[in-house]
Simulated assay, not measured.
Amino acid sequence: MRRRTMGMLAAAAVAGLTVAGAPAAGAVPSAAGDAVTASVWRNVALTGTYTIRDDEGIFAAGTYCNGNVASEGWVNEVRTPSVWWETTCGGEIRVEKHVSAETDAGGGVMIYVTLRFYEGTNDTNTDLDAEYNFNRYVPA
């Protein structure tokens, strides 16, 4: 039952997720440190809504948590993964959104998203119950 709920949460979270990217031109130092090379930067914004239901525990059973998923960051052609958003529910469920993205020469951006669902005895546990991965390309 718990895994089924987590699977439904993944589907609901993805169904409500919107991806947008705004271009920006910039310059960054090269690896040599002395020359400046052109780089394509994009501001990536990920938004959506979520609903989590906690069915376990004495006090948290039947707890519903609703909210908005909103995060953004500037990316360029270097793919750097990081946790962009995190929430908890009922004292024992945690959802994390890990994002990495990279631009291409034409100004488009490839966005890689991993949703991780944890459920255990507290909201800082490392009991990974489910993981959902998806990619989205946004042209310039």
Rank of each mutant, 00 (worst) to 15 (best):
N125R: 00
A60W: 14
L115V: 03
N76P: 10
Y132W: 15
V14L: 11
A22E: 14
V83G: 13
Y118P: 11
L46E: 11
N66V: 15
V75I: 02
A45Q: 10
R42N: 13
G7V: 09
M6R: 06
G90A: 15
R53S: 05
V83Y: 00
E131A: 00
G62H: 00
S82H: 08
G7S: 08
R3D: 06
N125L: 00
E72M: 07
L17Q: 13
M6D: 13
M8H: 01
T63F: 06
V28E: 04
W41P: 11
L9W: 09
Y118H: 02
A10R: 12
D54Y: 09
A22H: 14
V19F: 08
R42V: 02
L128P: 05
A27M: 10
G57P: 02
S100R: 14
A25F: 06
G90W: 15
V19I: 12
A25Q: 10
V40H: 03
S82R: 10
A61F: 14
V14M: 10
A35C: 13
V83T: 14
G26S: 12
G7H: 00
V75R: 01
G48T: 06
G107C: 08
E72G: 08
V28P: 06
E119L: 07
P29C: 01
N122K: 04
R116D: 11
V36H: 09
T103K: 03
T18F: 11
G90M: 13
N122D: 11
G48M: 03
L115C: 00
D104Q: 05
Y118D: 07
T5I: 14
N135H: 13
Y137C: 01
